[in-house]
Each structure stands twice: as structure tokens, then as C-alpha cells.
């Protein structure tokens, strides 16, 4: 009973705030409407009995949406929607795609003949998840590590205007970096 109520409340919040992303004019509100939608989805994941995944979704999404707000506001004109102007490109198209996807998925969910659950889920899912991650193949983690390393290097190369040669001189011999603003170390 309580689970049903929670399910419907969270579901409606997720859909409505997801829809609000298209309706709001302010970049800040759009981002946090998306965050509200993600948080509701995280609640639904918890309802499914996947505690770790739900909580970690909330954790990651809060961080990521705040970072996204920073970037949206940095680059989009009229970030607070003070001017009555639309900030969307191809609003009708994107709306059609998202509403269409939602409808297809919802219909699919309703029409599928879901099998009845046999057995019970493993008692300690987080533990199982850890085993799955660490289970035997070191390759997964190493590939991931190198990928993330490449991501860090690539973003640094792409996003910083001044590299080490600008900071320490052509022969990298300067004892202190020459930066417009000082830092904490070195």
C-alpha cells in the first residue's frame, strides 16, 4: 500500500519535472527540474529494492546537475529567463521525440507479458555488485582506468588555454609557475 503510494508519487514527480525541463525558461530552473526528475527516479530505484543503486544515483546526479548548472549558465544567453525569449533549438522536434519515447516505453511496459518472479533476489546486492566488479577480470577496471585517464588528459588539453610551457617557460626551468592567479601548491 505504502509502496504503491510512493511509486505513484515518485513516478508523477519524475514525469512532471521531466516535462518541466521543456516548459521553463530559466537555465537554472531547467537544470534543477532535471535534478528533481533524477531524484524521483532514484527513489523509484530504491523502491525496486536496489538500495545502493538508488542512493548512488542521487549522489552522482546532485553533483552532476550542479556542475551542469554552472556550465549551462556560463554559456547560455539569458540564463535566468528574464527576457521573454525561447532558448530552445527545435523544441517541437525534441518534445515529439521525448514524448514519443515515453509513450512507446510506457505502452511496451503495459503490454509486455512480464514473467512471474521465481526465487528471491540475492540478499546483499551491494556485495554482489562488488563481486561482479572485482570478479576475476582485472581487464574491466584497467580499461576503465585508462579511459578515465584519457578523459582527464583530453579535457585538460582542450579546456586550459595555458599549458606547462606557458607556465614554466620553454625549457620548463622556471622555479615558480607564472599564472594570472596563484595557487596553493608550487
Amino acid at each position: 500500500m505504502l509502496a504503491d503510494v510512493s511509486f505513484w508519487v515518485l513516478g508523477i514527480v519524475a514525469v512532471l519535472s521531466g516535462f518541466a525541463v521543456f516548459r521553463l525558461n530559466s537555465m537554472a530552473r531547467v537544470t534543477f527540474a532535471l535534478l528533481a526528475s533524477f531524484l524521483a527516479v532514484a527513489g523509484l530505484v530504491v523502491l525496486l529494492g536496489l538500495g545502493y543503486l538508488g542512493v548512488v544515483t542521487a549522489l552522482m546526479m546532485v553533483i552532476e546537475m550542479v556542475v551542469m548548472a554552472v556550465f549551462m549558465i556560463m554559456y547560455m544567453m539569458n540564463p535566468a529567463g528574464l527576457m521573454p525569449m525561447s532558448m530552445y533549438h527545435n523544441k517541437a522536434g525534441s518534445m515529439a521525440i521525448s514524448v514519443g519515447t515515453f509513450a512507446v516505453l510506457a505502452v511496451g511496459i503495459l503490454l509486455t507479458d512480464w514473467p512471474v518472479r521465481r526465487g528471491v533476489p540475492a540478499p546483499a546486492q551491494t556485495y554482489q555488485l562488488g563481486l561482479a566488479l572485482m570478479g576475476g577480470q582485472m581487464l574491466t577496471m584497467m580499461t576503465l582506468g585508462v579511459t578515465l585517464f584519457a578523459t582527464i588528459v583530453a579535457t585538460v588539453v582542450l579546456s586550459t588555454g595555458r599549458g606547462r610551457y606557458d607556465r614554466y617557460g620553454d625549457d620548463l626551468a622556471a622555479p615558480r609557475a607564472d599564472d594570472p592567479a596563484g595557487g596553493g601548491v608550487g
Binding site: M134, M142, I152, V153, V156, T160, R167, D179, P180
Partner: peptide, 25 residues
């Protein structure tokens, strides 16, 4: 496995530090 993974990431951080990415440029 985990600490090799972290070591790779820390190498990335060291690179970012040297490039001045951790500063208010």
C-alpha cells in the same frame, strides 16, 4: 586492482596539476 586503477587516475591529476588546470586561470 583498485590501487592500480587509482594510481592511473592520480597520474591524470598530477598531469592536470602540472598543466595548471587546478588554478583559477
Amino acid at each position: 586492482e583498485m590501487f592500480l586503477f587509482l594510481a592511473i587516475l592520480l597520474a591524470g591529476v598530477a598531469y592536470a596539476w602540472r598543466e595548471g588546470a587546478l588554478r583559477w586561470t
